[in-house]
Design a binder for these strands. Sequence first.
RNA 1: GCGGGUGUGGCGGAAUUGGUAGACGCGCUAGACUUAGGAUCUAGUGCCGCAAGGCGUGGGGGUUCGAGUCCCUUCUCCCGCACCA
Length: 927
Amino acid sequence: MEYKFSEIEPKWQAYWRENKTYKVDVDNSKPKFYVLDMFPYPSGAGLHVGHPLGYIASDIYSRYKRLSGFNVLHPMGYDAYGLPAEQYAIQTGQHPAITTEKNITRYREQLDKIGFSYDWDREVRTCEPNYYKWTQWAFTQMFKHYFNNKTQKAESIESLIAIFEKSGNSNIDAATSHESIFTALEWDSFSEKEKQEILLNYRIAFLSETNVNWCSELGTVLANDEVKDGVSVRGGYPVTQKKMKQWSLRVSAYAQRLLDGLDTIDWTDSLKEVQRNWIGRSEGASVNFSIKGHSDIIEVFTTRPDTLYGATFMVIAPEHELVEKITTADNKIKIEEYITWVKGRTERERMADVNKVTGRFTGAYGINPLNGNELPIYIADYVLMGYGTGAIMAVPAHDSRDFKFAREFKLPIIQVVTRAGEEITDPSTWEESFDSKEGKMINSGIINNLDVKEAITTIIKYIEEKGFGYGKINYRLRDAIFSRQRYWGEPFPVYFKNGLPEILDDSKLPLELPEVDKYLPTEDGQPPLGRAKNWETADGYPFELSTMPGFAGSSAYYLRYMDPNNNDALVSKEANNYWQDVDLYIGGTEHATGHLIYSRFWNKFLFDLGYVCKDEPFKKLINQGMIQGRSNFVYRIKNTNTFVSYGLRNEYETTEIHVDVNIVHNDILDLNAFKSWLPEYVNAEFILEDGKYKCGHAVEKMSKSMYNVVNPDVIIEQYGADTLRFYEMFLGPLEDSKPWDTSGIEGVHRFLKKLWRLYFDNNGELMISTEKPTDAEQKVIHKTIKKIKEDIEKFSFNTSVSAFMICVNELTDLKCNKKEVLENLTIILSPFAPHISEELWCALGQTTSVTDAVFPEYNEAYLIENTKKYPIQFNGKMRFTLDLSANATKEEIQEAVFAHETTQKWLDGNEPKKIIIVPGKIVNIVV
RNA sequence: GCGGGUGUGGCGGAAUUGGUAGACGCGCUAGACUUAGGAUCUAGUGCCGCAAGGCGUGGGGGUUCGAGUCCCUUCUCCCGCACCA
């Protein structure tokens, strides 16, 4: 029998399916291990070879852990809500549920062919009512809780009401958008509606009027992580700022815990750094500036309160609430013009113009609380409403943006920090401001001569004493806007009564997504759900028309996998206590600021409520690298249908054209396939070199338009899934980006065939010997067992593959067919190539699945080397090697080296200056 | 601008604590078998050189008996964040 992967693979896949080989349950007799892949959004294009890279890696690890005695939870599901299906629905009228279902079926077929060890009984789909019931449930819980800053955790709204009733809100330190202070008596006097409006500002899921990223092309608002470079991540459409009433999640309340949690988890430093930047903690002070002739004050956040004396003007964001109030009559028109201009610009335009200085004077003056100086107040769009308080004190001497602004508007510049040894010059002669993180204060009243660090603490203490400010920590992390004006998402379990939102009772969940006649907004601009009939409660109260965003369904899916069919809870206590958290999470780096922040937040919230036992959901996380495409090109001579081979292209004027990589082998074009590829090439002619058409190549993103997409199905058909799995791992380190080049796959395929021939002779007859293995054979296999174990544990799968190749090459050279050796080899190979391993395991006479075997221990005794091939260097250059006993002493080594004729040649009659002998390592002779 | 990463043959990539640079594979060259080869097997393959030998891990400098690995400096490309006060 030869290696017939096309028969072996479906056979074992059927076996696994029928025997539920990968089904797992809570089993307290075994330690648990949870390996999770970021579940895919099932797109219409299907999987390409880049997608399974992480899945294969996690599958190898899962199988390895299982062989090592763990009860491994390794589930898969689908992130099934999303814009592409809905956009397609708008174009075709086809219900997104239908296209989604179709795409899922296709994904499943492709995944099944690769031979993953998923427990498919645990599959989840975010768009299914029995799943999104728990997404809605979590939302209702967030509605029912507020965040207590003192205890740093979520607590019930009831407990908050109790405090309000007892002592008002002056003693409460909660994450809230409510500002005014009220007493218990006042609280009591508020109407029910007033009370509810106040409470809404405390809830973790809350409704509020905020500036949002509005994408008119998609007809919806977007969260910050869904906008990149001023355009929508999905589709690349322009985004503008707009004030809208929206549901938000108070993620910012968890900023500090999200930051602190990073120190407790095993993620890469770069990913942690991305999250730290996104959370954006900065320490500084909040300082109140009064406004000349007004009772209002402007609150400013600054990280450099030490430079207060250097403030020469103030800038507030054009959207700042005080703009209208403080603008003087003679400046009104100019200010309004400016605000209109700012509003009309897209985010992208604004970002492209960051170097242009624009702004307008309001006519008002702020008062520097330290020295009473009057500071003209400007509005400018370099100050963002979304950060801090939307107002700054400008210190042009030490901030480049303030400096530019000061120059543009001819405002004074006062230096307040000097660097060591610096000569003081007139700031009006400066070319630019300078950063002043270190230095001594000047022109700074009470903090003169202090170091910057000391000045900061001194001034904070001072302003706190004087009562015009306090030390403050600010975060860049914003609350997550949670409404989408779209159809294909989870409905909110919310209805409106007298204009106030009320939450559906748990017993009414899930609130199922209704049917609509079209997937477009209504004529009067309501979201698509505005088209649904009877979209109201039994009592006739209207339901919320927005749906939840993409990240809603993915925020707790890892918990649902633990107990996917539970109708009474997201996850049972028992299941959660057993599976606890994800031990290994593998997925793409693109989720660094979205999913991985939101799900951590979501998990911490559920942790506060006692529904889950772990504060952090993902213990270890690995980002697999991107598989890039390797494109091929042909060169058409201009205005002809003649194509010239790569090496000759410079002799003609040519156009470089992408050609389908699937009709190119080792950069040689299949001419007939090319002619039938596209109608326009039927009559193509070629200028060849060496009788062949050579193509050019380049590494690019894998995409349809570059014709470099490789489908795993095609690879599996030609080489089998085991070859695909091996080759994906062989390409390079898991975390690196690397190009896919199908050419190299022959190597690993040959390896599998060579492996097969260790078990079967040329006539396909099994030729296993039960004789005792020789020491040499044992050495080969035990060396490999050790290497594979070490490699898997450090996720170095590419080097495992070469170790297997070396092992098979060596066993082939030894003509080894000993059962004991081959059994061990089969087991350690099975995480990588499960199908062939099952087949060989069976051929070895085993009657159970290789997945139930035990990963072998290596025996040190076989690994001991008796001799060492010593490299002999002269002046640090290796000249020859010498086989010596591994336990030879320094003296013995030296004697042997100097007895060697080559040594005499390199000494060339000279006395060695120095002889370095490192036993077991190397000999170096300095001449 | 800030932060992170990367750089090794024609290509993907290997190299414990500093200790034989280029493992393994692709490709390429030659040969064997074959009606045939995008099959299989054998040998070779970093660069220059007939050879002896020399040169080689982005560039320059340093530490060391010895540097891909450590230190300084510089460049390239990639990624993330970005008027964040």
